[in-house]
Design a protein around this nucleic acid. Sequence first.
DNA 1: CCTGAAACCTGTCTGC
DNA 2: TGCAGACAGGTTTCAG
Length: 279
Amino acid sequence: MPELPEVETIRQRLIKGFGGRPSILDQTILQARLLWSGTLANANNNYFEGFVRGQQVLSVDRRAKFLYLTLTDAYLVFHLRMSGDLFMEQIDQPETHPYRYAQHDRVWLDFDSGWRLVFNDIRKFGRMWLLKDLDTIFAKIGPEPLDEALTPNDFHQNLISKSRQLKPLLLDQSFIAGGVGNIYSDEALFIAGLHPLRKSDSLSLLEATRLLNAIRIVLSKGIDQKGASIDWVYRGGDFQNFFQVYQQEDQPALVAVVRSKKKWGQRGTHFCPNCQRLD
DNA sequence: CCTGAAACCTGTCTGC
DNA sequence: TGCAGACAGGTTTCAG
């Protein structure tokens, strides 16, 4: 599901507590359960459940679209992929609402407070790693788009060092941390007035600057709005009310917004042919 | 190096 | 009503 703003929102809710749920910080793990073995990417089930028992959650951080818990003696890293979610619920009073698919819980961390961290993931694409060293996963990730250390000049240099189509390049996490995400890359390219299939090495410094600024605008706005709620997978955000091209095919102001699949970096792509020209 | 297709999965929606 | 097919916010791997 989640793109960067949704992941960041989930992180903040875990840290600050949300809707009557407590913060996950300083909670001590009484017992861990791996309910679907495929979720744990790099260790074995018994080892995992035994290792994390008794450990405390010291912090929750994000790198790209990875969320990770710093435990007393290790890191527990999550990637939500297309349908994952992380939330707290009471062990003896699980959430019940139409979209609470308890049968798709993949991991439980039960705390001695009576609360439980649930990793729920309908499509089973999500993964969890138990790590001593974060670099084993984070080494190949590109620069964080919202980090001011990434200057327009750097971004331009990175763009022209490749000859890639912009849309798939923005989804490539080795190019920019976490990729920009499908919705947010469509929105950013629209704001920057760049065609999704423009070759990266054809951009001027001015265009690259516009693109970087547009990426920062849409990601920041997405975080401010606590992500986008577009279907049953993730709810609670309002950024969908600010979409300018994504799923805006019917907006008369955007003439002939094209939605083409599998030829556009394998993803549904929305753009305005009038204001995002290839030539 | 670059592109596109396939793979990993389950739920929802559309159209016949 | 049922059913087939398309589609979904991500990423990796492989063939050409």
